[in-house]
């Protein structure tokens, strides 16, 4: 770990985006919960916009594909462009022929892994229940669709508070569902666009600052 420091902006000129993988490697620690909510919200926002433009859907295969932009936008890039991976096999969980719930599932997994970054196999991070529920539902959407359940049923034994009651998550089927849950996490839902954009903008700015600092030390 760490011997291969990524080189944001190595191509020259000001850098306008960083991948989530670069961010994780530079900090060498996981993202925090607020950043997870924000990346989730912002990425689903851009995926929604892309869907409206009828752009092909693609699953997130690694954190290298999730790009955080200077202005706080978060986008999902094609795998081969960023990760240096060979193009995904056509058809199978590949590019354009996947569903919205599959994209959400893959994003949930990537975000969980970013929260889990650096932890050992036998360790598990304690997440706040709402974030754990969000990720759980994102990552399980395909199953939820298949079984046509209504959300929880017997799965979440530990949640008996009234507060938790109103936060109950039903199956996530769309980017909009994810965004609504992220907005509901805030005291004022209408602040979600500005708030989450600001969190991602700060994530970009602070990571670039760290990169500049580390480069100077080198």
């Amino acid at each position: 770990e760490g011997e291969e420091t990524p080189e944001p902006g190595a191509a020259g000129g000001p850098q306008d985006s960083l991948s989530l993988e670069e961010i994780l490697r530079l900090y060498n620690q996981p993202i925090n919960e607020e950043q997870a909510w924000a990346v989730c919200y912002q990425c689903c926002g851009s995926l929604r916009a892309a869907a409206a433009r009828r752009q092909p859907r693609r699953r997130a295969r690694s954190a290298a594909q999730v790009r955080v932009w200077r202005d706080g936008a978060v986008t999902l890039a094609p795998a081969a462009a960023d990760a240096g991976e060979p193009p995904p096999a056509a058809g199978k969980l590949g590019y354009s022929h996947c569903t919205e719930t599959e994209v959400i599932e893959s994003l949930g997994i990537i975000i969980y892994k970013a929260l889990d970054y650096g932890l050992k196999e036998n360790e598990e991070r304690e997440l706040s229940p709402p974030l754990e529920q969000l990720i759980d539902h994102m990552a399980n959407t395909v199953e939820a669709d298949g079984s046509n359940d209504e959300g929880y049923e017997a799965a979440d034994e530990g949640l008996e508070d009234e507060d938790d009651e109103k936060r109950k998550v039903s199956a996530i089927r769309s980017y909009r569902d994810v965004m609504k849950l992220c907005a509901a996490h805030l005291p004022t839902e209408s602040e979600a666009p500005n708030h989450y954009q600001a969190v991602c903008r700060a994530l970009f700015a602070e990571t670039m600052e760290l990169h500049t600092f580390l480069t100077k030390i080198k």
Binding site: Y27, Q29, P30, I31, N32, E33, Q35, E105, I109, Y112, K113, D116, L119, E121, N122, E123, E124, R125, E126, L127, E132, I135, D136, A139, N140, E206, T207, L210
Partner: peptide, 24 residues
Amino acid sequence: KGKSLYKIKPRHDSGIKAKISMKT
């Protein structure tokens, strides 16, 4: 700055980490 604080517990077979691992 940028420091995230979080608690670590032993991985649980029924926990979210195990569920995510099974998917990947």
